[in-house]
Every structure is written in structure tokens, then in C-alpha cells.
């Protein structure tokens, strides 16, 4: 008993602190480290509104985005002339948000925005910036939100070739490259073609500029693949526009904290419309 008492006297504080550290860490993990992000947002507040030093790059990207959008709109217009029951998508109210942090790990391509649920951002909102689509909001705290970039390998988006309307889906490749996998065996595609989000995507509104085809590998099995250069300069962006997603989120039985399973359910909703029917023209 005495030995135990002596041991306890010596180690009680250390043990208590160790328990405190472990429980705090566990709490942070379960709350997606919301406290850390909120504090970070407060601390970086004075530095956020600084002018952008990469103005030239952004301007260039904007010109490119406009060009791509023009191509996309031209093609869409052509399609619309043939299609009569087209319903215009109402533009939703957009929130402009600064990027305050980059991803906290090398394996994930994420950014942290300096606006959160108090400003009206919800999980699933579409994030676009100068140059085109940037990603999707996967987590929000009162004043910050975390965005999964399109360049992340787990981020998959239904896309279409603007010129020939051939469909496929896009898988991030880190940096500002992505891989587009086609649903057709012999797609009509060549380097330089403009890629935009397809009208079958349930996560993104149709017609957002994504990027340009850099190279095509027709020999790839099971379907041809193309490397896409994303048009939004993801590593230089400082401000982005967040638009609430117009689509209904997938029904969830319980609130999920697990990012991976969120992604999976999203992915399924995004790709199921393509899967059963080969949408080949």
C-alpha cells in the first residue's frame, strides 16, 4: 500500500497530464480539429486581405477560363438549339471566401477557407475560383471550411469534352494535373480540347470550366485515359467563390464524421447516372 502511495504521489501529475493530452487529442480527432482551425482563422485574420502578388498568373488564368467558357457556351448553345425542353439553372447566391490554409498533409489535396457555417457555407457547396472549378466543401466549422480540391485522387467529377460531348470522369493527380477516364472505347478527343463538368454530374453544376486535354492514351485498358491540365491555378489562388450545391445531398442515416465514407457515398451519387447505360452518342 505504501509503495503504491509513493508511486502515486510521484506519478499522479504525469499520469493526469498524459490522460488529458490523450483525451484532448481524441476530442480534436472526433471534432475534426475544429478548435484548431477556428484559432488559426482568428490568428491569420490580419493577413488575409493582402493583395495578390501573382496577379499576372491569375489574370492569365482568367482569360483562359473565359475562353474555355466561351467554347463551352458555344457548344451548349448549339445543343440547345436542338433541345427544346432545356431548363435554365438559376444562379444561386455566392459567397466569396479567402483561402487561409493549405492541406495539413501531403497525401490530401485540401485547402481551408476563412468562411464557414456562420456565413452560410454548407457541406457539399461547390467551390470555384479564377480559372474554373476548384473543389467541394467537405467540412465546415463556424468560421472555416475545408475544401477537397479537384486535384485530389479521391475527388471524382463527371466531366465532358466540350467539343464532342464525350463523357468521362476525372480523377485528381495532385499538383494541377488530373486524369480523365472515358466511358467510350474510342472517344473523339485530341490535345487542346476544353473539358468542363458534365450535365450528369450530381455534385457540380454543368458547364464549369475544368481544364484542357494535355495528352491522350488510347491504349489504356479498360478505357482510354487523358491527362488534363486544370485551368484553375490551385496553388496560387487566394480568393474563391462558394456556391451552395443545387443538388440534394445523398440521404444519410447518421451524421458521418468519416471523410472517406462521405466521399464514397458522394462518388456513388456522382457516377451512378452514367454507369448502367453507356452514354455513347
Amino acid at each position: 500500500m505504501y509503495i503504491f502511495r509513493r508511486w502515486w504521489d510521484r506519478h499522479a501529475l504525469t499520469l493526469g497530464l498524459a490522460c488529458l493530452a490523450l483525451s484532448t487529442a481524441w476530442l480534436l480527432r472526433q471534432t475534426q480539429s475544429a478548435v484548431v482551425l477556428e484559432l488559426y482563422q482568428r490568428l491569420t485574420l490580419p493577413f488575409q486581405a493582402a493583395g495578390s502578388p501573382q496577379a499576372a498568373i491569375l489574370a492569365n488564368a482568367q482569360v483562359e477560363e473565359l475562353q474555355q467558357r466561351l467554347t463551352e457556351l458555344k457548344n451548349q448553345n448549339y445543343q440547345l438549339q436542338k433541345l427544346l425542353d432545356y431548363k435554365a439553372v438559376q444562379p444561386a447566391t455566392a459567397i466569396v471566401a479567402p483561402i487561409v490554409g493549405r492541406s495539413a498533409d501531403h497525401w490530401w489535396q485540401q485547402v481551408t477557407l476563412g468562411r464557414g457555417s456562420q456565413q452560410g457555407i454548407k457541406v457539399g457547396a461547390v467551390v470555384s475560383g479564377t480559372g474554373g472549378v476548384v473543389g467541394r466543401v467537405v467540412q465546415v466549422t463556424p468560421n472555416t471550411s475545408r475544401v477537397l480540391l479537384v486535384s485530389d485522387p479521391t475527388s471524382q467529377v463527371g466531366v465532358t469534352i466540350s467539343r464532342s460531348r464525350h463523357m468521362g470522369y476525372l480523377r485528381g493527380l495532385s499538383g494541377n494535373r488530373a486524369i480523365m477516364e472515358f466511358f467510350d472505347k474510342v472517344p473523339d478527343v485530341r490535345p487542346g480540347d476544353v473539358v468542363s463538368t458534365s450535365s450528369f454530374s450530381q455534385l457540380f453544376p454543368p458547364g464549369l470550366a475544368v481544364g484542357k486535354i494535355e495528352s491522350v492514351d488510347f491504349g489504356k485498358s479498360p478505357a482510354p485515359e487523358a491527362v488534363i491540365e486544370l485551368s484553375a491555378p490551385l496553388s496560387y489562388l487566394e480568393w474563391v467563390v462558394v456556391t451552395p450545391s443545387t443538388t440534394t445531398p445523398p440521404p444519410q442515416s447518421e451524421p458521418q464524421l468519416d471523410l472517406q465514407s462521405d466521399l464514397q457515398s458522394d462518388l456513388q451519387t456522382d457516377l451512378i447516372p452514367f454507369a448502367p447505360t453507356g452514354l455513347t452518342p
Partner: peptide, 21 residues
């Protein structure tokens, strides 16, 4: 190892818990 566990849990919260840090 304990410090690694604590920091790993926090980093999991900041990115994604699967795979774990």
C-alpha cells in the same frame, strides 16, 4: 510513442482519419 499517438490523432482530425497518422 505516446507523443506520436497524440499528434497523430490531432493530424487525423485536420485531414482524414483513414489512413491514420
Amino acid at each position: 510513442a505516446f507523443a506520436g499517438l497524440v499528434l497523430g490523432l490531432i493530424q487525423d482530425g485536420l485531414t482524414s482519419p483513414d489512413p491514420t497518422h
